[in-house]
């Protein structure tokens, strides 16, 4: 490896985490998609924050807006059709949404980085994996080709790809699914980002490989004290890794809690529904409780509580009044009957 790539050569970051390690604040974010079928309100006032060394899980079904949130943070939404009418995304105190394009681009990779669900389609099929990892250094650090390849080997070794040196010039289709996701991770952590967003990183993988990838992510996060946002619909995946969780439904956060509380004492009927739909060994033979119905059409979001058409506890008030996100015990829930859910 070339000596020119020691820590001192890395440009000083313009961004400094706030007091108590605050990295990212999303505040009252709205995202709409203007389509011929109408305006789809994908995100409706989402707020959360993330600190150094913390793992936040964002949970929800597909269409709940969790991926759109991630893409809005990364700044990779296609605009149009996407429009951000209001809200702020502050990274180290600076609003990403008001930055110019070039500043924003330079933040992708060295500051905030992202891993996608399907590594096969997310990697370019026509370039060697080492080339694709090394591209981070070439674009952001102006490194030459051979140094960039050396860095790629180092990173591939770090994410435990066997025979990294020999495989650095292989193409994505020559790797297994788990190995490909490791390559995605190597690429995402290449420039030591402060925030890593993982969008369904294990959904496309076998169960045993899922555990390995989650362990790797947790290990890297611990080692680098990154803020990690873990987006998933699979509650089983995040239980061991996440510190806190936010549950999204129809573009809103409907529940927020420490991960233990969320599992042990859900305070929102939707969270409870999600938990009940996980197969459990101690309830063998019983019918799995699925949540009836489908997520709402985002061009026609129901009045009142957006979840009421699918909620077993729905009352009249749920159809007319939208519940605010409020504190119940040591967690938050946007349900008119949060106490009943928590205690029932």
């Amino acid at each position: 490896m070339s000596t020119s790539t020691t820590k001192s050569a890395i440009p000083e970051s313009n961004y400094k985490a706030g007091a108590d390690g605050l990295l990212l604040e999303v505040e009252d974010l709205f995202v709409e998609f203007h389509t011929p079928e109408g305006v789809a309100r994908a995100i409706n006032g989402v707020s959360f924050d993330l600190r150094q060394g913390e793992t936040l899980a964002i949970l929800g079904e597909s269409g709940s807006g969790k991926s759109v949130t991630a893409q809005a943070i990364m700044g990779i939404l296609d605009m149009p059709p996407a429009v951000i009418p209001s809200g702020a995304i502050r990274y180290c105190g600076q609003d990403l949404l008001t930055m110019n394009q070039e500043q924003r681009r330079k933040s992708r990779g060295p500051e905030i980085s992202m891993i996608f669900q399907d590594a096969l389609s997310s990697l370019n099929p026509t370039f060697p994996v080492g080339w694709q990892i090394g591209e981070m250094f070439r674009q952001h650090r102006g490194m030459n080709r051979s140094d960039a390849y050396a860095q790629a080997v180092r990173l591939m070794e770090r994410v435990a790809i066997p025979g990294a040196k020999d495989r650095v010039k292989n193409y994505p289709h020559q790797f297994s699914g788990g190995m490909r996701q490791r390559i995605m991770i190597a690429m995402a952590i290449a420039l030591d980002p402060a925030v890593l967003i993982a969008d369904e990183p294990t959904t496309a993988l076998d169960v045993t490989v899922q555990a390995q990838i989650m362990a790797l992510l947790a290990e890297l996060q611990e080692e680098r004290q990154m803020g990690l946002i873990l987006i998933t619909h699979d509650l089983g995946v995040v239980a061991d890794v996440a510190d806190r969780a936010a549950v999204m439904y129809a573009g809103r956060i409907v529940a927020r809690a420490g991960i233990e509380d969320l599992y042990a004492h859900p305070a929102h009927p939707y969270t409870r529904g999600l938990l009940e739909s996980i197969p459990r060994l101690d309830q063998k033979g019983q019918t799995l409780a699925a949540i009836g119905g489908l997520p709402p059409n985002l061009t026609r979001i129901p009045s009142g509580c957006t979840f009421h058409p699918r909620c077993r506890m729905a009352q009249d008030i749920c159809r007319t009044e939208e519940p605010a996100l409020r504190t119940v015990g040591n967690q938050q829930s946007a349900c008119h009957f949060a106490e009943e859910v928590l205690n029932g």
Binding site: F33, T35, E37, A40, A42, S62, G63, G65, K66, S67, V68, Q71, L77, D78, P81, A82, Q117, D118, S121, D199, E200, T203, H233, L294, P295, P296, N297, L298, T299
Partner: peptide, 18 residues
């Protein structure tokens, strides 16, 4: 890309699977 913009924007298709 099962959970990206497309699936979010066109929930109409989901709703009318019936």
């Amino acid at each position: 890309m099962s959970d990206t913009v497309a699936s979010t924007v066109q929930p109409a298709a989901v709703e009318e699977v019936g």
